[in-house]
Write a protein that binds this DNA or RNA. Sequence first.
RNA 1: GCGGGUAUAGCUUAGUGGUAAAGCUCCAGCCUUCCAAGCUGGCUACGUGGGUUCGAUUCCCACUACCCGCUCCA
Length: 526
Amino acid sequence: MSDASKKDSELMKKIVSLCKSRGFIFQSAEIYGGLNGCWDYGPLGAELKRNLKDYWWRRHVQERDDIVGLDGSILTHQDVLKASGHVGGFSDPMCDCLLSKARLRADQIVPQTGTAYHFTGVTHEESGWSIEKDYSVLLTEGQDPNKARKTARLYYSQFLTDKQISPKKLELKGESTEEVSDSTRYNPENGSLLTEPRAFNLMFKTQMGASADENDESAVAYLRPETAQSIFVQFKNVLETNRLKLPFGIAQIGKSFRNEINPRNFTFRSREFEQMEIEYFCHPDDGMALTEEWLEARLKFYEEIGIPREHLHILDVPDGERAFYSKKTYDIEYEFPFGIQELEGVAYRTDYDLSVHQKGSGKSLEYFDDQKKEKFIAHVVEPSAGCDRTILALICEAFDEETITNDKGKDETRTVMRFDPKMAPIKAAILPLLKNKPELVDKAREVQKALQPFMNVFYDDGGAIGRRYRRQDEVGTPFCITIDFETLGEEAADLKDTVTVRERDSMEQSRMPISELLPFLLEKIH
RNA sequence: GCGGGUAUAGCUUAGUGGUAAAGCUCCAGCCUUCCAAGCUGGCUACGUGGGUUCGAUUCCCACUACCCGCUCCA
């Protein structure tokens, strides 16, 4: 591992550790040993996520008159996913090589012709060890039969409990041969038998109805693999009930599930994840231009929530790597400590989605333009963002450790989560300077009550004031409001009912009348 | 899915074939007039399940989870 990646790995460890110790993110079912790739958001994580989703919704739905919202069901009719291509079409059957463990796409295996050597097992006389397991090796014409036996011994040797035993000492059992032609059951690389082709089930499959039979195909339903499909399927209902005209969008935030995902990198890749998607429908002529517009709009959004442009990368997905129906796709990527990884895809999906559902359902999903007297299937541009990934990016971006020199001239580390105030889980901490002075405590509680209806604030009177400031730094609270003796009017009459406002990033303090707190904070967090 | 590594308190680590130590955190109390002060007290851990053993957190096996490298990611 290089120094840089080691440093990044250390950084990621710190971030994961802070997420747990401060209550942002916990492992799912931790007390039962954990559930692979599943995570729970703790109190602060839940606030953070809510802030992100709320802001996304406000920006893209409430503050625009061309986008409306939808909240579709997670359980999905199997016909929807058959039409979309998720059932069948997109899942490539794969085989694993029993010897080398290499994974091959079944449809890409070059058919082989030759002699198959079958074996039923192997024994090791000295130790008495043996195993019964069918295995075969394919030899093409002219190859030495001993090559098949050697390969088979190698295969069986992987089951040896005593790794000291040489594969050469293994006695093969039940050898027989068979002529085969054009077979794709063997690895062209080494002749080893492959596993049966297995369709990777990308989706979580379930049965509808409490008494549904496991084999009842008609009871099959799926957890949605993306939020997009319910938008396409409800396109007509939304269009007809909302007096919409192209171009317009339908937005949705919600959970999606993909079983094939190999969980990695903390919450980055999970089997259960939340998406924030817009399907923006338009005239076919406008698709390309709108893709560019959406890319810009989304980059601006990231900037607004505190992820600067210079930490984002835009990948113009080249021909051949895009989905076959997409004419243009941009990936917006973020520089995570574990690498540059995708946050969002902005894809021009043409009329693929509405076309397949029109065909699949037999219902017309065409759009009629009254003015141009033109009928067509709308094209769609899809900005599809990963909510959990964006949360992780916000956390990585916010994390900072700075060295400051304290009063005694000693260096110490201050951990600060530099969240944008819009995103910060706690907007302000209300702190009475001293806990054992009831006048301060009462006043602080008053301030807390005044702010609570408008934002998430946090009251804390435990320990020294400096400690409380640092605690808030570590969870990213942008402002600390301290009720002190000036507030009570004990020092100077004109300072009565003013408080200390301490800013997280600069640690600077200023005085402010209590009456100005609310407008001040609202302006910062909006 | 494959290979490697790891698993002790909320966090970071120590340690042992006879059930465990420390720092930080946290809680309570005292004290404290602005950046992790101090004092006193307190809660909390050997991932799960087997095996060996008189006895296992320690040795062995399996499982689970996390991390790293591949693979995969419509």
